[in-house]
């Protein structure tokens, strides 16, 4: 047997340990990114659910200026946490539309009354079909859509205060 060959198992093990150590101290990012970033919104038409607001269709995003699309639900706790940031964005002049997942008109009305109402339109997605078509895996998620209906960026999870400048930048880039 060749002399160096007997050290081969130890070397292989060393590589495994290096990989494991890296994986251990650098936990993998498990967020699901939509494959649709850079592609047009899927076609959808959703009925209205919030009092006094129209429903939402993909055609609403082809009006020439970028908009935010917020996927939320009244039963979702992080959605409450991100509400102030959405209001900040609205105050900065950003038009925001929303899709409410598995929700009822009464619950949505109560949610907007309690947490403030940043939305221009709210569509009801009772069975998460549009959410899945968007490549969104949970609530809340927020998409930056440019004036031609193309998704330019995706934000997974609640919007924190430090995320607001990033989103504004993404909106500016989408112009």
């Amino acid at each position: 047997m060749k002399r160096w060959l007997v050290w081969l198992p130890l070397c292989a093990f060393g590589i495994i340990v290096a990989v494991i150590a890296w994986g251990l101290w650098q936990p993998a990012d498990r967020t699901v990114r939509s494959a649709l970033v850079g592609r047009p919104l899927p076609d959808f038409v959703l009925p209205a659910i919030a009092p006094g607001k129209p429903g939402l269709a993909s055609a609403d995003f082809r009006q020439g200026s970028p908009r935010l699309l917020n996927v939320f639900a009244s039963w979702c706790v992080p959605c409450v946490a991100e509400a102030p940031q959405l209001l900040t964005l609205k105050a900065a002049g950003v038009p925001i539309d929303a899709i409410a997942i598995k929700d009822t008109p009464g619950d949505v009305a109560a949610f907007l009354r309690r947490n403030g109402d940043p939305y221009a339109r709210v569509g009801a997605d009772a069975h998460s079909r549009v959410q899945l078509a968007l490549g969104s895996s949970g609530v809340p998620e927020t998409f930056v859509v440019d004036g031609k209906g193309v998704i330019r960026a995706q934000h997974v999870g609640d919007i924190r205060a430090e995320d607001v400048p990033e989103l504004l930048q993404a909106l500016a880039d989408a112009k």
């Binding site: 495994i16 990989v19 494991i20 890296w22 994986g23 650098q26 993998a28 990012d29």
Partner: peptide, 9 residues
């Protein structure tokens, strides 16, 4: 089995 961790690197 380990490839996903290697790729993540």
């Amino acid at each position: 089995t380990f490839y996903p961790i290697i790729a993540a690197a």
